[in-house]
Amino acid sequence: MIEATKEKPFSVFNEDGEIEAIPAEVDHFALLGVQRKFKVDAEVLESRFYELNRKLHPDFFMDAPVAVRIRSLDATARINEAYQTLKDPIARVVYLVQLESGKLEENERTPPPELFEEIFEAQEAAEEFQCCADEEEAENLRERLNAAMGCFSALKDGQRTALDRLGAAWDEAVEKNEPAPPEVVRKMRSILGQRNYIENTLTSLRRALEESE
């Protein structure tokens, strides 16, 4: 979507300085006036957010008609949500990819079977470890959990690196006014679709190991 990145940022205030209702289709990037891409300048983002937030402070609207007050509150909520999403690198890339190619859950329900097998093995070992009484068995399990921890941490790091690389390719296309390459979008969707499975597994492993200490 080339036009969107070049579009003038949406203005919450019209020429007469009145608050405009924000149409639903205005995305977080347009709302905060930053280019729709993978990398966002954190300082610019923060200053845009504070500037808008200041202008929308409830003190300015105490005597305003109800409709205007409601609009100012709506705008504040939208701007908050946009800022929370865009300042977090992972939340931002999830948002960006979904904006470009639709909800992740629509087509990422079945990640590679090998990954699922490893997840079930790790989760089952964590469960067993937590209710296991036999000391020797516990020692074996602890080793397995530590090994799994290493594997999944490495997987997570690898995916993070891959995301950065793909994000750079995405931004390069945006700079040239080209749409994000479909191959890049596809790979990013696949990585993001697996992210929560890996996170949950790491959480279970960590919890099991911590409780035993």
């Binding site: 992740l104 859950e105 329900r109 990640p111 079930f120 993001l192 992210r195 929560n196 499975y197 949950n200």
Partner: peptide, 13 residues
């Protein structure tokens, strides 16, 4: 049947 929910990371067999 092994499936998962990418939005929350739940896995089910």
């Amino acid at each position: 049947g092994i499936v998962g929910a990418p939005e929350c990371g739940d896995v089910m067999k």
